[in-house]
Simulated assay, not measured.
Amino acid sequence: MADDPRLEAALRDFETTANNFAIRIIRAAQVRAEYVVKIADMSRDIRAAVQAGEMTAFNGAKLANEMRNQILDLQRARDFDLGRAYAESLKQKGLSLDEAIAKAMKKLKLEPRPIETLNGNQQRQVYQEVIEAAGRSRPSETARIPKLRWAARGLWIATFAVAAYNIGTAENRPWQTGREAASIAGGLGGSFTAGAAMGAAGGIWAGPVGVAIGALVGGILGAMLADHVYVETAGTSNPATRQFVSRYTGLLTGTDESGLARALANQHRTDPRFVQMVFQSLNQDYSTDADDVALEFVRLARQDSGLAQRLRQDRGLRDLLIRLMDEGWTSSGEQDAIQYLRRL
């Protein structure tokens, strides 16, 4: 296991975030690529039908406009929250037929006259332009497809690299593999749940920005919850401490810091190696509780001369307790306990 649980937690957060956004980027690139192909095929088929006299230019323009809007809606429905929110920020919905005709007339420099005043050849040109425009995608966004795919690959590589590092530095690799899988799955579930919630509040959170925030925060919270469930279900990564620690921890009840510290002080006071292993397990698998148990253990030692003597003789355990209480924010009680240990 990595020596610093805070580093491992930070890496797990990064792993979760990279995985969540890689999945979204892959889907966005796929949906965009399929959209480009489908509208181009649709436009080509309608244009050929008009040229063959199978339908009028007007009917072809009307059908092409309707089909593009349908393809747009169907592809957006297939995309994930972030890609859908981004697409809607560029264009809320497809153009109406009148809007498409107006846009075609502007391009052909036939505005501002009403289309009814144009001669037959000009009207046909306008309708043909509507058909062709229905098959064109926004060039700047289409050009992003290869970049999105490369970005997604980079995020996938980062996800696998972090997972491989956490597993490779673990003492119990099968246990750590399960932990990584649980974190990724939980992060994915939390990310999509929160991303959808933020997407529903798009007016407040500015569309894709809000979805991204929801995906990020929800993913991390989901990973943390899944990690907690996994540790509580599987027990500590060290089999030697698993049964003992499980007696004082629970999925719904949390950690009984006082009870755990008393058990160490009373039942295992003559086995400093086991006491140290338990604190190492807490540091690795219950890092948010480890400092509280350490503080309670020191409090008991200050009331028990025999336990204090054990601590005085065990430099390694003293240093470990100091490190647990000195990491992150340190309360006044922890600072006092640290000074006490350093004076022993």
Rank of each mutant, 00 (worst) to 15 (best):
R6W: 10
L7F: 07
E8L: 07
E8Q: 14
E15N: 13
T16D: 01
A18E: 02
A22T: 03
I23C: 03
R27F: 11
S43W: 00
D45A: 14
R47F: 06
A64S: 11
N65M: 02
E66Q: 15
E66I: 05
Q70E: 15
R76F: 04
L82N: 08
R84I: 01
S89C: 06
K91V: 11
G94M: 00
S96N: 02
A100L: 01
K109W: 04
K109D: 13
E111F: 03
P114S: 09
N119P: 06
N121S: 14
V130Y: 05
E132C: 00
A133I: 08
R138E: 15
R138A: 14
P139M: 01
S140I: 12
E141F: 15
E141H: 12
P146A: 04
R149C: 07
G154C: 02
T159D: 07
T159P: 05
F160N: 12
V162C: 12
A163N: 10
I167H: 06
A170I: 03
E171V: 08
G178L: 10
R179W: 02
R179N: 11
S183F: 08
G186K: 04
T193F: 14
A194S: 14
A197T: 11
A206Y: 00
G210C: 05
G210R: 02
I213T: 12
A215C: 11
G219C: 01
M224E: 11
D227H: 03
N238R: 13
P239L: 07
R247Q: 14
T249G: 02
E257H: 15
E257K: 10
A261V: 07
T270L: 13
T270K: 13
P272D: 11
Q280I: 03
N283F: 01
Y286G: 01
S287W: 13
A290I: 00
A301L: 08
R302G: 13
G306C: 02
Q309G: 08
R312G: 10
D319W: 10
D319L: 14
L320E: 14
I322V: 15
E334W: 08
A337D: 13
A337F: 11
Q339Y: 12
Y340I: 08
